[in-house]
Amino acid sequence: MTGTDSRYLCIHLGNDEFAIPLLLVKEVIGLPDMTPIPQAASHFSGIMNLRGKIISVMDLRVKLGMKGQSTSETTVIILDIDGHSLGVVVDKVNSVQVLSPEMMSEKPAIDSTRASEYIQGVFRRHDKIVLILDVAKALQAGKAA
């Protein structure tokens, strides 16, 4: 998924910072009006109108077991996943970061962490840990929904 591009979009979900391969990101928009889908999984925020296209929006925070509370900084990033557009609600978009391989390190081997399967690796930024997120994997369960 990461390809040869080493640029990442850093986002906040709750208090944690994550990085998403920039090439997956098509655009970043404010929190749109969404139409909820009855009986959908809890992380399925609804469908939105993106310039005439209907796009499903998932709440990554809920998906990763956090609380989904929206603030003025809450944003939707539109991702291209296998050729389909998908919106993802995140708490905050921080910056674009170029990561060289030496900056990255293996994720701490804690098997019990429930999110560990979505985490490709970690790196440090401003003395804080940033998790590299495999969005497609993180949303896999969402796809089945």
Binding site: I37, I47, I54, I55, S85, L86, K143
Partner: peptide
């Protein structure tokens, strides 16, 4: 309008607008 693949099998719904 077509719905995304994550909603294709959603019963009772043929599309969106």
């Amino acid at each position: 309008k077509q719905l995304g693949p994550e909603l294709q099998n959603y019963k009772g719904v043929s599309g969106s607008t």
